[in-house]
Amino acid sequence: MKSLKEHRLEKLITQTELAKLAKISRVSVSQIEKGQQKPSELTIRKLAKALDVKPADIEF
């Protein structure tokens, strides 16, 4: 299992690009990556879809 940041960097996309793909704010992506915000189930699904991975494959 990889962190959100590891998945994002593996796909070579920025926080801003991920935020646009997942339809959430860049600040939220940053806070989730830093552990400052716990994502909702909906947000987890959006991020997983944007990264083309299963929600269970992302470690938060």
Results as ranks from 00 to 15, higher is better:
Met1Thr: 15
Met1Trp: 14
Lys2Phe: 04
Ser3Ala: 13
Ser3Gly: 13
Lys5His: 06
Glu6His: 02
Glu6Asn: 04
His7Ser: 10
Arg8Gln: 11
Glu10Asp: 15
Leu12Thr: 15
Leu12Arg: 15
Leu12Ile: 13
Leu12Cys: 15
Leu12Asn: 15
Thr14Asn: 12
Thr14His: 09
Thr14Cys: 11
Gln15Val: 10
Thr16Arg: 12
Glu17Lys: 07
Glu17Val: 14
Glu17Leu: 14
Leu18Glu: 08
Leu18Pro: 06
Leu18Ser: 11
Ala19Pro: 03
Ala19Thr: 07
Ala19Trp: 08
Lys20Ser: 07
Leu21Cys: 07
Ala22His: 02
Ala22Pro: 04
Ala22Ser: 05
Ala22Val: 09
Ala22Cys: 07
Ala22Lys: 03
Lys23Gln: 01
Ile24Pro: 01
Ile24Ala: 02
Ser25Cys: 00
Ser25Lys: 00
Ser25Asp: 00
Ser25Leu: 01
Arg26Trp: 00
Arg26Ser: 00
Arg26Pro: 03
Arg26Met: 00
Val27Ser: 01
Val27Phe: 00
Ser28Ala: 10
Ser30Cys: 08
Gln31His: 04
Ile32Asp: 01
Ile32Glu: 02
Glu33Thr: 05
Glu33Pro: 01
Lys34Asn: 03
Lys34Val: 00
Lys34Gln: 02
Gly35Asp: 02
Gly35Glu: 02
Gln36Thr: 11
Gln36Lys: 08
Gln36His: 07
Gln37Pro: 02
Gln37Asn: 09
Lys38Arg: 10
Lys38Trp: 12
Pro39Cys: 09
Pro39Phe: 08
Ser40Lys: 05
Ser40Pro: 11
Ser40Thr: 15
Glu41Val: 07
Glu41Met: 06
Glu41Tyr: 05
Thr43Glu: 06
Ile44Leu: 09
Ile44Thr: 05
Arg45Met: 08
Lys46Glu: 01
Leu47Trp: 08
Leu47Pro: 03
Leu47Val: 12
Leu47Cys: 04
Ala48Thr: 11
Ala48Cys: 10
Lys49Gly: 10
Leu51Ser: 13
Leu51Met: 10
Leu51Glu: 13
Leu51Asp: 14
Asp52Asn: 12
Asp52Val: 06
Val53Gly: 06
Lys54Ser: 15
Pro55Ala: 12
Pro55Arg: 07
Ala56Asp: 07
Ala56Gln: 10
Ala56Phe: 09
Ala56Asn: 06
Ile58Val: 10
Ile58Asp: 05
Glu59Gly: 11
Glu59Arg: 11
Glu59Leu: 13
Phe60Ser: 02
